[in-house]
Amino acid sequence: MKFSIQINEGPFQHQASDSAYFFTKTALEKGHEIFRVFFYHDGVNNSTRLTTPPQDDRNVVERWADLAEKHDLDMVVCVAAAQRRGVVDDGEAQRNGKDATNIHPKFRISGLGQLVEAAIQSDRLVVFGD
């Protein structure tokens, strides 16, 4: 079955990113397809490569990136939510005159159309948030 996942909450706010990660990982292990993981609202904070949690804590960003690497996941960050929160890729840095980027290379910034497409193309859209 084809799933898409929407995450509305930051990595260290509560539990949504953890729940979404374990759901996604388990769905893949069970042979399901993940069409897209869409990061919305504070969920865009899951995509910054500059995150440095303590060594004895899980690294939420790297954990998503590893899963994406292993299963070729399409991980999309909402552009408007990202701009508000200072999550920047090369294109956004150029467009908005910023002197740095911070998005992890396994994520890409795009628009809400990607969420709508995911909802249409997938059998199920599962939402995690606060």
Binding site: M1, K25, T26, E29, K30, H32, R124, V126, V127
Partner: peptide
Amino acid sequence: DYAGFVDLAAENAKVQAWL
């Protein structure tokens, strides 16, 4: 467990999160 969660999401026609 999470495997059961995935099965429930697949068995039911849609998933509604009450956030």
